[in-house]
Design a protein around this nucleic acid. Structure first.
Length: 891
DNA sequence: CTAGGGTTAG
């Protein structure tokens, strides 16, 4: 400029000024620099220039300074130029000031400035941002009237707007009618479908786009990845992942974030982790996605660890904070949860409804309901999730009344949703409250929530738990769609009903409907095999565990250990145990129980010590198992030692089950007086299980006085468990007190209870044979009866005398002898002897305890037939061999 | 491109 002065004409000088200002405008890289240029424009008297003011407005908008944009616009006197209007409307829209943008558009129209094709995209964006349907219609019509219906940019904006409104049909219509489309048109539609959960359509459009051969960009990919995730389209997702390398957009943060999210939706931790580790640049979204993903996979500790790592690099935002809060809830880490909450408050971060809901849930899960309530009460607007979370918290902490009170309050504020009802059903399931459950079922039907799968699943579960399996089946059959949980629940119902045939049928139906069993399915089926000792089915399921890839699941391993041991195959059980890489307290408990059932108390004790040495803390179930094992091996001192250890070493308060185990331990070893003293010294009120344990032992040892006292106590307790009445009745029968027997039978009837009929069963060459007590209608009945007669004579010669106390009916002694011969386990054993080759070991299962007389008889039979006979009764295994039993008479 | 409450199993 120095040298130019004087040499140039005015016009030349003017041109020079224009071009240098123009250049300065272009190169300004901040709002501050821009305001300097702005000042220069004003001093040069060029602020009315249409050319500069428009560019200033846009440039200010670019630097997120819409106020300066407005200042420039307001200083422009000449407001008839559409370029100025377009600039300001675009500037406002760009900065999210949508209503202001629409205001300016309206003013523009009032001032009779005719919009052009550049006006509409911004105005449409503003309508989209405001969700202003009315205005959107007006604007769309106007653009159409002005003949812009085939404009690419307007079309793209319209697609985007309708997609945001969720009006995918309209978006699709605009798209279909466009004569010319670019990749943005496709992206807008695909992302619209994706964002609204129309995943199939999103993928379909993506495929069409691929066919056309238009070049994709990172936006296309980040729109289609959620669709793959949503559909769990693993192969598709991997193909797209592979494609990224080829088209060279694999380094894009947004794309990588999409991949991360997708792999987490596939539950593919390894793939997600690989994407994350290979990312050169990460942003807070990447970290949030990973933290959240770990949380969803229930890897909460990892999730918190990642959060800690993230904090070094990025300031955590609301999403990171809530993700880690969620983990705190699951980890029951109240302290850290509080710390994060404090951090949120300290940094002035404003929680939205979702974040507050997570806080409510976190505090509720940690049992701090006061804090939950405080968050709830401080919320400006609550939704159903807020209410549900709080109510669930009260239910879980046992404050049922408070929870119900809140539920009633909730109904005044807003409508409970299906989750609220699922929660109520779950509550009544736990309480086994069929009456309240039925009331809720009525409400559910009225409100139409019964069409929801989850609700139906909860209903099935509720009816099953309350023993109304018929109603479970009714709900089940009426369902239109069923998911894995439905099948798991209904199979569990069959197990509950002990209708194993129906259970197996259901498993087949599940297969027919094409549903793959999940871990929970196997966790339902395996115990079913355990309880009926279905060795072969159990083995088959063990095979499918590998096929389904569940072999690393600890819970599956635990169920297998139990299955093999309960099916009489201790060897396989131990094998599974040894092969398990990860063992938890349940695994060890299964092993201890297995040894206990086989009467190997020493090995059970060894296993318990090994468990402790491996650093696993026994829980109350482990103590039940070890005391049970001691009891069944006559290890009284050891049993008592462990009973004391649970409180002293592990601070576990003994429950009624533990006291029952100790009573069993003492009385099984004929220390009845001690057992009775123990009952009187216990801090809990003895229930039927306690007196029952004492009474069963009295029956075996014949202590009349204690038996009568225990019987009286049980009768007083008015238990609804039929087993105890039967026990009492059996004791009176053994004593010959038939009047009492009749009285007990009557009270069983008046209570509407039904006696569990005794039965035994065995598997011979893949077929199950079931024998009821005194049953006469089975094949080979004559032969079985004849064999039992021969055996009776043979064992009598060996010194056997029938123990008639085990006959529960008031009949003549001869008839009593016959009745003993009709005991189901004897029928099964005789049947087994007849139908297997000499020397073959027999295995018999029985649903109740083996009676004393059968126990003696089986010992004799094992000797004279030279057979190993393995009998599983309700409690344990008895291995009869050469006239002895493995239980050492501690049964 | 990232977030919340619910059902089965133990």
């Amino acid at each position: 400029m120095k040298t130019a002065n004087g040499l140039k004409t005015n016009t030349q000088r003017q041109w020079f000024l224009y071009s240098s200002i123009s250049e300065a405008l272009s190169s300004a890289s901040s709002s501050k620099q821009l305001s300097k240029v702005h000042a220069l424009i004003i001093t040069s008297g060029l602020n009315q220039s249409v050319f500069f003011s428009g560019r200033l407005i846009s440039k200010y908008a670019h630097f997120r300074d819409p106020l300066s944009s407005l200042t420039v616009f307001d200083q422009v006197a000449l407001k008839t130029n559409v370029y100025q209007w377009n600039s300001i409307i675009r500037a406002l829209t760009h900065n999210g000031l949508f209503s202001k943008a629409l205001e300016y558009y309206t003013t523009m129209c009032k001032m009779k400035v005719l919009p052009d094709k550049y006006t509409f995209p911004s105005v449409i964006n503003a309508c989209a941002g405001l969700f202003d349907f009315e205005m959107s219609n007006v604007v769309h019509e106007r653009a159409f009237e002005m003949g812009f219906e085939s404009d690419l940019y307007i079309g793209n904006a319209l697609i985007d707007m309708y997609a945001r409104f969720g009006h995918l049909d309209k978006a699709r219509m605009v798209f279909d009618e466009m004569p010319l489309r670019d990749v943005i048109s496709w992206n807008s539609l695909i992302s619209g479908y994706s964002a609204n959960g129309h995943w199939e359509e999103a993928l379909e459009m993506y495929h069409r786009l691929r066919l056309i051969g238009l070049v994709l960009d990172s936006y296309t990919i980040s729109s289609v990845l959620p669709a793959c995730g949503g559909l769990v389209a693993v192969t598709e997702g991997q193909t797209i992942h592979g494609l990224l390398e080829k088209i060279g957009i694999n380094a894009d943060v947004i794309v990588s974030n999409g991949l991360l999210s997708m792999y987490f939706k596939f539950d593919r931790l390894k793939d997600a982790r690989r994407v994350f580790d290979e990312m050169v640049v990460t942003d807070s979204v990447s970290w949030n996605t990973v933290i959240c993903g770990y949380s969803q996979l229930e890897l909460y500790e990892e999730s918190v660890k990642l959060f800690m790592e993230m904090v070094d690099k990025f300031t955590p935002d609301l999403l990171s904070l809530t993700s880690v809060l969620r983990a705190c809830g699951h980890l029951r880490d109240l302290e850290f949860g509080k710390f994060v909450h404090d951090y949120i408050k300290r940094t002035g971060c404003v929680c939205d409804t979702t974040a507050n809901n997570i806080l409510i849930d976190m505090y509720a899960k940690c049992g701090d309901l006061l804090a939950s309530r405080e968050v709830f009460d401080g919320m400006k607007s609550c939704d159903t999730v807020s209410w549900n979370s709080l109510i669930k918290g009260y239910f879980k902490s046992g404050s049922l009344d408070e929870g119900m009170k809140l539920f009633k309050m909730m109904k005044i504020d807003l409508k409970p949703d299906f989750v609220s009802y699922v929660m109520l059903l779950s509550l009544y399931t736990q309480l086994s409250d069929i009456n309240q459950g039925k009331v809720i079922h009525c409400d559910i039907t009225k409100l139409g929530f019964d069409s929801d799968i989850v609700v139906s699943n909860a209903l099935i579960g509720m009816y099953t738990k309350c023993g109304q399996v018929d109603d479970s089946l009714k709900v089940f059959e009426n369902m239109k769609g069923r998911d894995v949980v439905t099948w798991n629940t209904i199979i569990a119902s069959c197990v509950h009903l002990e209708d194993f045939n129906l259970g197996l049928k259901m498993i087949n139906r599940m297969r027919m409907e094409g549903l793959m069993p999940d871990v929970a399915t196997l966790l339902v089926i395996l115990p079913m095999c355990s309880s009926i000792a279905a060795k072969l089915q159990g083995k088959e399921i063990h095979g499918s565990v590998f096929k389904l890839g569940f072999e690393a699941e600890v819970s599956i391993g635990n169920a297998l250990v139990e299955m093999y041991s309960k099916c009489g195959n201790l060897k396989h059980s131990l094998q599974v145990f040894e092969n398990m890489k990860n063992k938890d307290v349940v695994t060890w408990t299964a092993l201890i129980s297995a040894y206990g059932m086989y009467g190997d108390g020493k090995k059970a004790l060894g296993a318990f010590s090994e468990m402790e040495a491996s650093g696993i803390r026994p829980d109350h179930v482990a103590f039940i198992a070890i005391i049970f094992a001691c009891s069944h091996s006559g290890l009284v001192q050891e049993g008592l030692k462990y009973f004391n250890r649970m409180k002293n070493d592990y601070n576990i308060e003994p429950r009624i089950e533990h006291y029952a185990c100790v009573v069993d331990l003492l009385s099984r070893s004929k220390r009845l007086t001690e057992a009775e003293e123990f009952i009187h010294s216990m801090p809990l009120k003895p229930d039927a299980s306690i007196w029952g344990a004492l009474l069963s032992a009295c029956r075996a040892s014949g202590d009349i006085e204690i038996a009568e006292r225990a019987s009286k106590r049980i009768t007083e307790l008015n238990s609804y468990d039929v087993g105890y009445y039967v026990l009492v009745s059996n004791v009176y029968a053994a004593l010959g007190k038939w009047d009492q027997v009749r009285m007990i039978r009557k009270s069983i009837k008046t209570r509407g209870l039904k006696k569990d009929p005794g039965c035994s069963w065995m598997e011979i060459q893949k077929k199950f044979y079931v024998f009821g007590t005194g049953e006469k209608f089975f094949e080979q009945f004559e032969e079985v009866n004849k064999l039992l007669g021969i055996l009776s004579d043979l064992i009598a010669k060996e010194g056997y005398i029938a123990d008639l106390r085990y006959v529960l009916h008031d009949v003549e002694d001869d008839e009593k002898r016959d009745m003993l011969c009709g005991h189901s386990e004897r029928l099964a054993i005789a049947f087994g002897l007849l139908n297997t080759k000499p020397g073959t070991p027999l295995q018999v299962m029985k649903n109740l305890r083996v009676c004393g007389d059968c126990h003696t008889v089986t010992k004799y039979i094992s000797q004279i037939t030279q057979r190993e006979i393995l009998v599983r009764d309700a409690n344990r295994f008895h291995l009869f061999k050469d006239g002895n039993c493995s239980c050492g008479d501690h049964w």
